[in-house]
Write a protein that binds this DNA or RNA. Structure first.
Lengths: 239, 239
DNA sequence: GTCAACACTTTTGTTGACAAAATTCCTGCA
DNA sequence: TGCAGGAATTTTGTCAACAAAAGTGTTGAC
């Protein structure tokens, strides 16, 4: 009854007793691989237009090709990679029109995010952030410490998304943000842009501290509209 | 001959000359399978909470299980299906909070869509649609021909998305719309809702015909806000 | 009669091999 | 030398078998 089963083909032996013969590490999950690849693309470790060979990646991560394949499919869904049938996956190169499309979306989505965050938290919640952007952040811009500035800017961004409490919105903002991440530095060094952006953040945070949700939305939208205008003006320096 | 062979490396023969031994059709692509499954889920052919067994689907579509697997991964990314490790994929059951999150997003995204569509077309472009919603659509509601009404409503929707000319926006609207598709009928039969919705569409189209992009955005947002309010009021009849 | 442990079945997850397409490299001809 | 044609190699796509996990049914002790 129990044995005798398995009548297919394939003789019994097949002693595959080595889970990972090369690395002695437990194999990376799809999520981990996607994370690593995302980071590399974001910091242009892998430049736009570069090809991602499945075999190479499989070897590097010490996993079967199937898992790399799944990871690439995930990256494709996120729009970070383009796959051409029988040709493989290449890092998407974003052109100017795409950037503007992204800004159109950011305008309404981050506006919504600001409104929801205001509605769903106590106004005092944002006092600290307001003071940060009124004082220390101004210094950072003046002394050109962009890395620290960006780090704190992203912290505010994450706090707003968290406070908005809409997972779908969070995911969409994530998707479009990671595409422009490579641009942030280049935009921030445009003449005057960083300081203008800071002032607009102060304006938005003031509205939030006063509990004016719709005003906060409006101010965030204005901020992004002006960022887009700046971008339009200096587009040849960006891409 | 068939068994016992296949030593390891790649002997010459290997006569797998039957591409699809069962169906005599060429196998369906991942995109096709995803399409079929999407439709089934949308019209609740497969009810929420139902399990999708890979083996069954593979048999039905006449493809290898791998391809079904890829399709399910795509559906998972779209949020139509949830996958639990070693347990399989089940159709996502959307709860009330998710629905409200979706409406928050629709409000700003469809508002943006209306604005862009207005900015990027000639005002006359929308004259026909305006007349349709002023006249014939009113009759359809009065005589309760919901199917035809929905069909034309979706045609307008598609036209707006097309005219807006922002692929990213189009994709996002698609993603969130297909999740609520199952609800549309149930919302439309709420007392008075269909007629109110029609009037709001007329208001938006009037703005568009006059070339007032920002007004069109505002009106679309108002329309969805009121839809959400209606939903809140009658939520127990919806879910 | 109830419940826990165990064996069996079903279903999902992963792997390596094979097939097909595209690219590269080589050869022969003008 | 330049290049068209074609073999050889690389690379992606697909498949069926194998392994592991969860689910199910049965038996036996109390």
């Amino acid at each position: 009854m129990p044995a005798s089963a398995r009548p297919k083909t394939r003789a019994a032996a097949s002693p595959r007793r080595t889970p990972s013969p090369r690395a002695s590490r437990k194999p990376a999950t799809v999520a981990q691989i996607v994370g690593v690849l995302r980071a590399r693309i974001a910091r242009q470790d892998i430049p736009p237009g570069a090809k991602l060979r499945e075999t190479d990646l499989a070897e590097e991560f010490g996993v079967a090709r199937t898992r790399i394949r799944d990871s690439l499919a995930a990256l494709e869904q996120r729009g970070l990679v383009e796959r051409i049938p029988n040709r493989g996956a290449v890092v998407t190169r974003l052109d100017l029109s795409q950037v503007f499309h992204i800004y159109e979306l950011r305008e309404v989505l981050e506006g919504l995010c600001a409104r929801l965050a205001t509605e769903r938290t106590q106004p005092e919640r944002w006092q600290r952030e307001l003071e940060l952007f009124q004082g220390p952040m101004k210094e950072l811009i003046a002394s050109n410490e962009l890395d620290l500035y960006i780090e704190r800017y992203e912290a505010l961004r994450r706090a707003l998304i968290e406070a908005a409490g809409n997972p779908l919105l969070a995911e969409m903002l994530d998707t479009i943000y990671e595409k422009t991440q490579v641009l942030i530095r280049r935009i921030l060094i445009l003449p005057g842009r960083a300081e203008i952006g800071r002032q607009q953040h102060v304006a938005m945070l003031e509205a939030m501290v006063r509990g004016k949700a719709e005003l906060a939305e409006l101010r965030r939208r204005e901020g992004l509209k002006s960022a887009r205008a700046h971008l339009e003006k200096f587009q040849k320096y960006i891409l």
